[in-house]
Design a protein around this nucleic acid. Structure first.
Lengths: 213, 213
DNA sequence: CGAAACGTTGACCGTTTTCAATTACAGTGG
DNA sequence: CCACTGTAATTGAAAACGGTCAACGTTTCG
């Protein structure tokens, strides 16, 4: 049987993007920069939605406070991620956003954002496309996490972001961060990498991993 | 300018939706029904995008075939989920879709969908809102899965979907399905439930769980 | 009515998490 | 230019937890 996926009249495979680099604050509306020091609050649950955000550096934690006084973490945004996109469609924030560490965020006023979407025909579609991409990405990540064995999970992750023949994956973050994305401890990742390398399934050299097998 | 999301002044807390019930095929364009028997292919990677889909019953597996001949599962869609939304913005499918079990899907021609988005300004915004909701939801799920201990993971899940005081969560699916969503085996879920009930942290009665602690 | 799937619990085994310790750097301030 | 400090990268050992296998009653649905 011939290789599957032989004819791709479309773009190459972009399964997992490591970061949502070139995203919405791309000219539509005035953006502002804000610095938060560790522990500072960006917005609080119940407040009127003032702006949409994108994290430049640092780490922002989104926490929903429940009626019974407890709380749950909804998301931990890392560098170059947008967050609370859904607040564009809500009048008030539905969770708290607070900086775990010193962080820089780019903000765009909600009113301007909505105005841009309403006036520019392509803007709304562009926003939808962007979100659709995130959905695809998040689902792929979720599927990844349902692979139980650590080495297999990492292999799948590597294959998803590898290109070329032989497939080579560029490592653009620390393994510690990658471990968090994979839902493993960093120790488990290192051990799995050691096993994979011992079995000649991967070959590490600096910031790139060559896949075999 | 049309106030996005102005329908509900500001709804209560809807953190985790169990299913994306009322979604896109809501009048925009003609939809068609198609039945697939187990193992049948809905579309293949590389094919021109003909339609967008929503799964009524069954289970559809989305698989990306890599250049090196291997493949990775991108997503396993369950009843009442839409899938391959991103294909609305692509010319060809980037993965295979095949039915794990006998399934029923609702399809909407891509051309009609795009036409609807282009003509009706609110449609595009509505689609974006829907996707933003899915992003929020998927991120919450991901955060949930990063909770290691099974009982705590389940507690967090229950708290997310509980309402009232005391918080009560309605169980609208089988625990087996919930286990899959939580990234646990059903046995692990039952054991964790037993522990939680023994410690008086939850109280089960039929299709609802009352939370304490 | 019977088969398939769900619900539930027990025992055992394997993997990961934890905890700990060590090396390697990169940035900082003296 | 060099200790100094904090984080990343590794590896080891022991404990804990969840997965797997097994068994069985119950519910569901064709």
């Amino acid at each position: 049987m011939p290789e599957a996926g032989s004819k791709r009249a479309d773009s190459p495979p972009p399964i997992l993007s490591s970061a949502w680099s070139d995203e919405w604050p791309q000219g539509l509306g005035r953006t502002r920069l804000r610095h938060l020091h560790a522990g500072e609050v960006l917005f609080r649950q119940g407040e009127a939605v003032a702006a949409l955000y994108r994290l430049r550096t640092g780490r922002i934690r989104l926490v929903r406070n429940l009626e019974d006084g407890t709380s749950v973490v909804l998301h931990v945004a890392n560098a170059n991620e947008t967050f609370a996109e859904a607040s564009a469609f809500a009048d008030s924030y539905h969770c708290d956003a607070l900086a775990d560490v010193a962080s820089d965020v780019v903000s765009m006023p909600r009113s301007e954002f909505l105005a841009a979407l309403a006036s520019d025909r392509d803007a709304a579609l562009g926003f939808a496309r962007l979100l659709a991409g995130q959905v695809r990405d998040l689902r792929a990540r979720a599927e990844l996490r349902s692979i139980r064995a650590a080495p297999e999970r990492i292999m799948a992750w590597l294959r998803m972001r590898a290109t070329g023949n032989p497939p080579i994956a560029a490592i653009d973050r620390t393994w510690t961060e990658i471990a968090a994305e994979l839902g493993l401890t960093r120790e488990a990742v290192y051990r799995a990498l050691a096993v994979l390398e011992r079995d000649r399934r991967i070959l590490r050299s600096g910031a790139s991993v060559t896949l075999g097998r």
